[in-house]
Measured scan of single mutants.
Amino acid sequence: MIINNLKLIREKKKISQSELAALLEVSRQTINGIEKNKYNPSLQLALKIAYYLNTPLEDIFQWQ
């Protein structure tokens, strides 16, 4: 199972779901689904999230 800290990191950086979704060219619902662990992002999307949040990938997504 993958645990993610996306919501915590996104809120710490004061970025809304809508703003992050626009940067990543995905829907706000996609961001919401990832934050709620409804599904895991593709590797490409995970890397883009880490890039736009300027945060190491392993700080956002962790195996458990």
Rank of each mutant, 00 (worst) to 15 (best):
L6Q: 03
R10L: 05
Q64W: 05
G33L: 13
K13F: 07
E25K: 11
Q29W: 14
S27N: 12
Y52P: 00
K36S: 14
A22S: 12
I2T: 13
A21G: 07
P56G: 05
L24F: 03
A46L: 04
K7H: 06
T55K: 06
E11Y: 06
N37A: 07
S27F: 03
A21H: 02
S27C: 05
S18D: 12
E25R: 10
I15L: 14
N54F: 05
L20F: 08
E19V: 10
Q29I: 11
D59F: 08
S27D: 15
V26Q: 04
E11M: 09
Q64M: 07
A21Y: 02
I9G: 02
Q62G: 08
K38T: 13
L20I: 05
S18T: 13
N54T: 10
Y51Q: 15
I2M: 08
N37M: 06
K12G: 13
E11R: 10
L6K: 00
L6M: 12
A46I: 04
W63M: 05
E11G: 06
N32E: 15
A22P: 02
K14N: 13
I15C: 06
D59L: 11
V26A: 04
W63H: 05
G33I: 07
A46C: 07
I2C: 08
A46M: 07
P56L: 04
L45I: 07
L45T: 06
L24W: 01
L8C: 11
L45C: 06
Q29C: 10
Q17M: 14
E11D: 12
L47V: 13
E58V: 08
A46Y: 03
L53I: 04
P56M: 04
E35C: 02
A21K: 02
L45V: 07
N5M: 04
Q29S: 11
I49Q: 00
S16G: 07
K14F: 11
G33R: 12
L20G: 00
L8G: 09
A21L: 01
K48A: 08
I31W: 02
Q62N: 06
L8H: 14
E58R: 10
I31N: 00
L45D: 04
A50T: 04
I9C: 06
I49Y: 00
K36D: 15
Q64E: 13
I15Y: 11
F61Q: 01
R28Y: 10
L45N: 03
K7E: 12
L20E: 00
F61T: 01
I2P: 08
I2W: 08
Q64H: 11
P41W: 03
P56W: 03
I49A: 05
I9S: 04
Q64D: 13
A46D: 00
I60H: 01
K48R: 12
Q62W: 06
T30Q: 11
S16R: 08
A50Y: 02
Y39Q: 11
A22Q: 08
N40H: 08
L8K: 14
F61I: 03
G33W: 11
G33M: 12
K7W: 07
V26W: 02
I49R: 00
K38H: 14
D59H: 13
